[in-house]
Amino acid sequence: MLELRLVQGSLLKKVLESIKDLVNDANFDFSSSGFSLQSMDSSHVALVALLLKSEGFEHYRCDRNTSMGMNLGNMSKMLKCAGNDDIITIKGDDGSDTVTFMFESPTQDKIADFEMKLMDIDSEHLGIPEAEYHAIVKMPSAEFARICKDLASIGDTVVISVTKEGVKFSTRGDIGTANIVLRQNTTVDKPEDATVIEMNEPVSMTFALRYMNSFTKATPLSNTVTISMSPDLPVVVEYKIAEMGYVRFYLAPKMEE
């Protein structure tokens, strides 16, 4: 028996919108502490890791660990039918081949049930090692989205370099080059507007902008984004979900041949 009631249902809608274009289908792993998902995109260049802890739910019941394979496009279609203010409940029964999404309007005058077919997914689970990163940049998520979008109009790849001067995003394409430098800036009115650069060692890595732009679909989930880099490790682009968990995107670097 599985029953999860999320008062802020829009969060789940936003989570789906942020990952559904990257990953077609994935296993949702439910346990008593919350639910998680880990999946690579079809080309194995990017990986998404989602965690939503049980504390963030108004009601959370999961009698035993269970994994449900869902097509994210289909799940997104169903969640789009929920209003932004709706309470969303996910329900499942042991051994069933369906999952039910229940949407309740805030005034309880409209209640909808959507039952979705589950699927068997052969997914490989990867161990993500704990790492000490050379550099961690925390910045406003909207600024990061703007930079990725702007650079993608010039080139296909971005070089992200962190030095003690700041963080530099560079690209080059047929029409020319672009460099955007952000300096650490903590003298802001609101903490979420700050750019904070933690650098142990300088680092410079190259990534495909197409993927970075896909990750920025998670911007509505969080005012800030954290970018963690070490040479010879995938970059981690993390959007924290307040009080509940995170969506983390890992992107393999482009490397010199």
């Binding site: 990017a46 490989e124 990867l126 995938p234 890992y250 393999a252």
Partner: peptide, 14 residues
């Protein structure tokens, strides 16, 4: 030029 690496180059199956 540079070549796109994959996640599985860095993280192992568990």
């Amino acid at each position: 030029g540079s070549k796109q690496s994959t996640i599985t180059k860095f993280f192992n199956k568990v």
